[in-house]
Each structure stands twice: as C-alpha cells, then as structure tokens.
Nucleic acid binder design. Structure first.
Lengths: 224, 224
DNA sequence: GCAAAAGTGTTTGGGATACACCCATGC
DNA sequence: GCATGGGTGTATCCCAAACACTTTTGC
C-alpha cells in the first residue's frame, strides 16, 4: 500500500478514571457538549492526532475535558483497543482505552463538560458503549488487585489496615474477613508499619502503614 | 477538533502466530520485501485502512503476507496497542497487536515473503521491536495457560495426556511432574476420556482425551 | 459505662508438592 | 527380554477459610 494513498481510520482515546470516595469506587464522566450524544454522560475521550502518541492524547484530553493532570494518577494502564464499527454514529473508528487510578482527584468546575465522579454501582445513562468499557475496566481492576499491589494507587501514602481492607472491599464489591485479610496482606511483605497513628473518632487510633516500595509490584502469592 | 481537519496517526496491525512443532513453540515470521528493514525477518503486519476493523485488517494481512486463513486459528486474542514513535523509521505510528494460536498451520510457498515458523527460543534478528512483542505475547500465553484452557487451541481435537503435558511444558518452558499434572488437570473437569487409543511406537498405546466444550473457558482453580 | 472501630489466634480442610514403580507394546 | 513411553497412589506441608473476644478511645 503506497504511503501517499493510505488513509487510516479515525483513532480515539477514552479514559476510565477511578478513585475512592466515601468508601465507594467512583468513575469520572463528562457531559458531552456536542453531537453525537450531546448532553449524555460519557467517558472523557477524544481524537488522537497524527504525530501524537496514545498516552499524549490521553493526557491532553484529560486536561482539556476534565481539567485533570495525569501526573496526579497513581497508576495508568492500557485496557483494550476496541473496533468501533457503528459505535460512533459518525462512522467507523478505533478506540484505545486506558484506565487511571487516583486519590483525591478534584472535579474541575468546567461549566461545559461538568466533570463529575459517579459511583460505578450507580451510573447514569451513558453515550456510545461506555457502560461496557467501564464494566471491562472494573473487571480488570478487580483482577489486578488479586495479583499486584495496584491498590496503592487508590490510597494515601500512609493508610490504616482498615482503610486498606475497605478499599479492597469497595473495588471487589464484597466483604472480607478482617483477621484473614490482615494476616494474608501482612504476610505478603509489601507493607511496613510506621510509628504514626490516626485518631479518627471515639475509638482506638489506627496504626498507619506504608508500602515498602513505591510503584506496581506483582504479588508472590496471588491474593484472594 | 473539526472533523474536516483531523488527520489520524498511521495505524498498523501485527500478528504473533504460535503453533507447536516437534514439541517446540514456534512463531510465524515473514521476510520483509520492502524498506524499511528490507530482508529482515518480521511479524506479519500491515496498515489498517479507513473503514476496516483491526481484526479485518489482521485477517487480510495474514492472508496476503503469509497465505494464512485466520479461520484456521483456534484462538485469537488482542495483545496490546503500542505507541511507536521512532519505531517505524517512516514516522510515528500506532500498532495494534494480536496473538493467534493454531495447529498444523502450513508455511505457504510465497517466494517473496517466505513465511516461516521459527522456534521462540531461537529467533533470527528481527525488524522493529518485534522481538519484544513476541516476548510479550509469550508471557501472555504462559499466563493464559494458568487460568484458562487456552491450550486446546494448540492441540488436535483428541490428544493424549502426554501430548497435553508436553504442550504445557513447551509453552511454559519447564518440566512438570507427570503424576501431579494428570491429577490436577483431570480434577479440573475440562476433559473427558474417549474410547480411542493412539499407537505410536514400541510402547503402550495412549488413551485419547478431548475437551468437553469447544472454546475458551476460565478454570475454576488456577493451574500451576 | 457505653458506643465504636482497632486489634488479635486457633482449628480445619483441601490442594500443592514430592516422590517410584508397574503396564502394554514392538522388536 | 528389553527398551520405550503410558499409567498410577501416598504422605507432607502450607495456605485459605471459618470464627469471637479484648483493647483503646471520646463522650
């Protein structure tokens, strides 16, 4: 195929940004300002331009559409590339999707896009097949928690064991046994106790822990 | 961004096709007929055109460059989408990669592309970053064998337990204990004995087994 | 003293691992 | 009868799962 006559398909990037708020897993959505699906909620996404990498496009789109700096994400992972014949009413396209995990991410006050975090268990009606993409991302995240320490990206640098467990429970959407959880997680040797405690109401203060090493690690024994 | 002025990046598809030959894991390569990397070995790949899905492009490229019909693959799985700034000397590009598994796939006698299966443990010098892509695919396949029945795509419909074990050993690149392997695999309840035996030399004939259900299944307990 | 979350051990069952010999066949 | 791969069982260890009470604090 000669370079001169080659026309590539439309290429887009969509991001599934998760964070925890009030012990619930939330996902970032924006309100579409333009057709198609004008005024529907959707994942932040946009075109990838020539000369741009997919991650550069993701950064740009997150900044422009949601006021979010990707430097504030603790972990970014590519999810899947969807063939989107009939997905975008404007015609066939290919969509590269990424998942981002963060903590204390702000909803910018963009009056056009209205970036807003919604609980994954209670989503509004979504544009395109974004509901499926979020479900796919959620499954990937659940799986990731069982064989890596990815949970760190959803937590503060220092955290109590109860916070850790609650984070797991929020993502996995089921309750875990406190004693077994602590025994198992501590035996993985990923976290260390600090000498700090957090006082947090009319009850015993919680010891704070931190991960030995920043960044993603694979677990020696798969969790759960 | 206005539709009229939008120019997407170059989009390509590359395929990592695996099969077993003589108890070794082999990968399909072609000899590049054109620059860049003319005369280097490379994964079969090519451009994705507007109006074409990534899987359609994969099918077309496999057919044209390696004479391979994707219907002969037992399993096809998307691997990853690579940002390829500086990967293709002709400029930035995005490459969608797929892994395909098959059995008794022929090397067509194309005198230009010379499609040939090489042992993954003994690859020639490769164009682009295709060596890394093959390594990535191999890791994904190893992992996939531990939590799915993906091995079926590398085997005949009926197979002996020794063939099954040898296939696992070829992909995982390590030896397994025969008694434990059989006990474990049979306990998964995925395969059933047939009444057929295969005579295959000066020794006891091997009973043949088959999977209960065609297609990919997730294991109830992860293997290995 | 009471409410509320933090913290802590033991028992049991199932599966992973390690390991060696007999069986059926061709020549 | 011997070489070749097919086929089989047991003992041990570790880990997952189940399960309830004491501690520390604020009010």
């Amino acid at each position: 195929m000669a370079k001169e006559t080659y026309v590539p398909p439309t290429l887009t990037v969509d991001s599934v940004i998760f964070q925890l708020t009030n012990d619930k897993l939330m996902v970032l959505l924006i309100k579409r300002a333009n057709e198609p699906f004008k005024n529907s909620w959707a994942l932040p996404g946009g075109y990838i331009a020539a000369g741009e990498t997919t991650t550069e496009a993701m950064d740009r789109v997150l900044k422009n559409k949601a006021g979010l700096n990707s430097k504030n994400l603790g972990l970014i992972e590519q999810l899947y590339t969807f063939d989107t014949i009939a997905r975008d009413p404007r015609g066939p396209a290919v969509a590269v999707t990424y998942m981002g995990l963060g903590r204390n991410l702000a909803e910018s006050d963009d009056k056009t896009q209205h970036p807003t975090f919604f609980p994954v268990t209670d989503l509004p009606k979504l544009a395109y097949d974004h509901k499926d993409i979020i479900a796919y991302a959620h499954e990937r995240l659940k799986s990731k928690l069982t064989y890596t320490n990815a949970i760190f990206a959803l937590l503060e640098l220092k955290f109590s064991l109860s916070e850790l467990q609650t984070a797991y429970e929020a993502v996995l959407d089921r309750s875990l046994d406190k004693r077994n959880f602590r025994k198992k997680f501590l035996s993985l040797g990923l976290i260390q106790p600090t000498n700090e405690y957090r006082q947090d109401g009319a009850h015993r203060p919680a010891r704070l822990y931190r991960f030995h090493h920043p960044g993603l690690q694979t677990l020696t024994r798969s969790f759960d």
